[in-house]
Amino acid sequence: MNKHNEKVLVMRFSDILKLAISSLAILIILSFLGLAVNYVSPRGISLVYSPPPEIQINGISVPLIDEKQALNHLNDPGWVFIDTRHKEHYDLAHVSGAIFLSPEEIQDRFIEVQPFINEDSSLILYCYGPDCDMAEKVVAFLSQMGFTKFMIMISGFPAWQSAGYPVESSRR
């Protein structure tokens, strides 16, 4: 190895320090840029993540999430949305890909939706909003059927629709 190559490979301590400081400066500047863009962006998120509150149904912890958190799971094949509202409202508009399973006649309806969900599926249920307990009733039923992974979109379908997130209709 000639002298030049040795010079390339063997860095002096001051060079290393200079390199580290430059890297740190780039890291800080770009991080601040990210923070600034997040602050002004409509898709910005809060800087400190707070885990969603939970309720207990049949001994299972069910996180209560908002429509924004639910949106993160919309295209995730491991997650299934379940609409627990009345049939006429489901037909009018529902979360894209959501399955209809209302607490009314749930036993009969469950047989129909069973092929689309299995016990390993993670389920996001919703109804009309915070005052509605239809999603909780469906969770109680499904937990007896062996399902364990639930989230309830507590803000309900109206919040999802108002946010302009993907919806579809079953009306023909």
Binding site: S31, G34, N38, I45, L47
Partner: peptide, 8 residues
């Protein structure tokens, strides 16, 4: 981290 890392 999700806000800053992608910009870095």
């Amino acid at each position: 981290v999700a806000v800053t890392l992608p910009w870095v």
